[in-house]
Amino acid sequence: MTPFILMYGIYLMLFGPVSPGGGFQGGVVLASGVILVLVTHGRTKVKKLTNHVESFDTIGTSLILLFGILGILIGGSFFVNLTPYRMTSLVFLDIVVGIKVFAGVVVLSVFFFEQGVDPC
């Protein structure tokens, strides 16, 4: 079941500007796939992935900031379309925001799952 959920999340992220969906929704759907693995297989399998995911969050934020500053330098406003093709900046922002929201929700759920299993 998990591959289908991940596939649907990636679809929502990639086709955000032309169909219902977007970065936030895609990220949360992706995270729900990981939460399914977390609930069914225990947290030891997901624990390896978590350390990388925390860095995804930082990378996503700095990428968005970098993109915004590039837009100011080149185009004059904060989020400007850099390339002449249509929708490239929107798709890029969608993917970055989706990865960032995915990382955030995964870190959050792993934290609460860990704290809930063995109360001190």
Binding site: G16, P17, V18, S19, P20, G21, G22, G23, D57, T58, G60, T61, I64, L65, G68, F78, F79, N81, R86, M87, S89, L90, L93, D94, V97, K100, V101, A103, G104, V107, L108
Partner: peptide, 29 residues
């Protein structure tokens, strides 16, 4: 260039809003 109006407003006209929101999420995490 987007057909989805919500997407167009969220990521293009109101980019500062979205960026601040992501900063809130980042600080919470």
């Amino acid at each position: 260039g987007a057909i989805n109006l919500v997407e167009a407003i969220l990521f293009d006209f109101r980019g500062y809003d979205t960026f601040g929101e992501l900063l809130v999420l980042y600080i919470a995490i």
